[in-house]
């Protein structure tokens, strides 16, 4: 569950492997969270206020009842002319501006943030300075680890690798987790994963009970 630490956590794996479910599960403890949803994932809207208007996003957080938890599912990228990057940038701005800790859940993060190149300042702030200064924890998922923004990937302290046997995925695990992790990942069932924390050896975890 989320702690007072401001961590970034990545959830990688193939479709229907349980990565989004795990990100939602882990972020349940956040008192305030914006789930950035560009793919209309029903699970992201569950127990959340679905918001489409950028101004509404800021207003809802500003006027919320601070005694209660609030999960927002933001689908602003559906507006004509708004790119996923712009939608995510706004979420970062709002999360930074929120007077209290405000977490972000970036589903399919590779679709939201380009792999390289200059990033809008709010995203840069969340990715680079988050741990030291800004209380913006990030939970992100992706099924294309090789396309993940390097700042996000390097700044992530905890990875959960779910099942998958696609060569690019297993190659990534081989390089970033260890050759001995590949066989384990190939055999993982739904909701099963291996956990890799910065500076620690990976460990196989029991399936999530979701």
């Amino acid at each position: 569950m989320s702690s007072e630490k401001c961590l970034k956590k990545g959830y990688l794996g193939f479709e229907a492997s349980g990565k989004t479910a795990a990100a939602l599960y882990d972020s349940k403890g956040e008192k305030l969270i914006i789930r950035v949803d560009i793919n209309h994932q029903d699970s992201l809207a569950k127990n959340a206020s679905v918001i489409y208007e950028p101004a509404e996003l800021a207003r809802v957080i500003r006027t919320r009842d601070k005694r209660r938890k609030l999960a927002i599912c933001y689908r602003g990228a559906e507006l004509s002319g708004v790119t996923p990057l712009e939608a995510f940038t706004l979420c970062c701005r709002v999360a930074i501006a929120a007077p209290e800790r405000c977490a972000l859940l970036a589903d399919e993060a590779d679709s939201l943030i380009p792999k390289s190149g200059a990033l809008p300042e709010p995203i840069d702030a969340v990715l680079r300075r988050g741990l030291q200064h800004l209380l913006v924890p990030v939970y992100w998922t992706s099924l294309r680890p090789a396309s993940i923004n390097l700042d996000l990937r390097n700044g992530t302290q905890e990875f959960k690798y779910f099942g998958g046997d696609e060569p690019t995925y297993t190659d990534f695990i081989k390089r970033h987790v260890g050759p001995d992790a590949v066989d384990h990942v190939k055999k993982l069932g739904k909701y099963s994963y291996i956990l890799k924390k910065t500076g620690q050896k990976w460990q196989e975890m029991p399936p999530l009970s979701i």
Binding site: E4, E53, L57, A58, A97, A98, P99, R101, L135
Partner: peptide, 25 residues
């Protein structure tokens, strides 16, 4: 620590939710 009231030195003045809301409107 969940309060952001103590902003680190050297960083630009942070935006407020009010100003973001007004800009978006």
């Amino acid at each position: 620590m969940t309060d952001k009231s103590e902003q680190p030195r050297g960083l630009p003045e942070p935006e407020t939710l009010e100003s973001i809301e007004a800009e978006m409107r």
